[in-house]
């Protein structure tokens, strides 16, 4: 048993790429779900559109990196409008079904052979991150006994955490302003808000765009951190993980998504490192579980965790029972 390896990957995951990506995605989702009450089940599509917008611009069309970022952000705004305009006047469950359908449409388009000339089909795209790593100011890696990061990783983590901080600052500022008050009131009862002269539809669209854009930052970081994108990353399970994280950290809490993401990835990495090594030393007989099956166990535990959280602590780990976001309806 390599306990030191298991612990060091778990520790690294606390601040690692996945934690950043899911924290950003969940910050956006928290704006949708936690604050505005929008059931967006297509957050993965926002990340996907951002990442593909950037990668297609750079790799397929050979345009500059920054233009790619702009195209990605533009795509996210367009997606938010496309999803929001037909559904935001309807009941909450319609948005849920339309967004999950839209996310699947986006994924199927990304991986389709017909568009593979631009999207790279199921292989995805690579070689779009050179300009990003050219900006890397780090010249030496960090190597301690417990954690080690290469210079590339350090650069991605720095940019990622700066983005997380910016996103948190924006959400914090907004949610204590009159704008945030309207948003939270819409979550409680949009007819009441309408009767007070607020254009509910416009606010919902604004919230959808804001959450999409904040989440899309995660899409950029993910693509750049891996230096590659693949369509099947952006499946519905991506979104379900984000929901788990939002609820874990406590919906409608500014720091909830970050805390949730850190706990989530620490535990998941720990389990995913622990099980295979238990199998390899024979602590778990291979008749019960093989290394291949160990991967499924992580997902099973996420599912069970999500259920237990919602049943017994719907306010999240640090939330206040009185502020439970999920008892409505």
């Amino acid at each position: 048993m390599n306990w030191d390896v298991i612990f060091s990957v778990s520790l690294e995951s606390l601040i690692g790429l996945s934690t950043i990506v899911y924290a950003l995605a969940a910050i956006g989702l928290n704006v949708h779900f936690g604050y505005t009450g929008l059931l967006n089940f297509g957050q993965s599509a926002f990340l996907g559109v951002a990442a593909y917008g950037m990668a297609i611009t750079v790799t397929t069309f050979g345009q500059p990196f920054w233009l790619g970022i702009l195209v990605g952000l533009g795509g996210v705004v367009v997606l938010a409008l496309l999803l929001g305009i037909p559904t935001l006047r309807l009941r909450a469950d319609y948005l849920a079904i339309v967004t999950i359908a839209a996310a699947e449409i986006v994924r199927l388009l990304f991986r389709s052979v017909t568009l593979s000339e631009w999207t790279g089909g199921s292989d995805g795209l690579q070689q779009f991150s050179q300009s990003f790593y050219d900006m890397n100011p780090y010249s030496s890696p960090i190597e301690t006994t417990l954690i080690s990061f290469s210079t590339r990783e350090l650069w991605v983590l720095t940019v990622g955490w700066v983005l997380v901080a910016i996103a948190l600052l924006i959400v914090w500022l907004l949610m204590r302003s009159p704008w945030g008050r309207v948003i939270k009131a819409i979550r409680e009862d949009e007819d009441a808000v309408r009767s007070l002269g607020k254009n509910v539809f416009s606010y919902k669209i604004q919230a959808l765009i804001l959450g999409g854009v904040l989440g899309s930052l995660g899409g950029f970081v993910f693509a750049l951190g891996l230096a590659a994108i693949q369509p099947d990353t952006y499946g519905t399970e991506f979104t379900f993980y984000m929901y788990t994280i939002v609820i874990l950290g406590g919906a409608a809490r500014v720091f909830g998504p970050v805390v949730g993401s850190m706990i989530f990835w620490f535990l998941l990495t720990f389990i995913n490192a622990l099980l295979p090594s238990l199998i390899s030393v024979g602590a778990i007989p291979s008749s019960i579980m093989t290394t291949n099956q160990a991967g499924a166990v992580g997902y099973i535990l996420v599912g069970i965790g999500l259920m237990l959280l919602l049943i017994f602590r719907p306010q999240g780990i640090f939330g206040d029972k009185k502020e439970v976001m999920l008892d409505a309806r």
């Binding site: 609820i247 099973i300 599912g303 999500l306 919602l310």
Partner: peptide
Amino acid sequence: IISIGLAL
């Protein structure tokens, strides 16, 4: 959302 957890 519990049903999502159950589905996973």
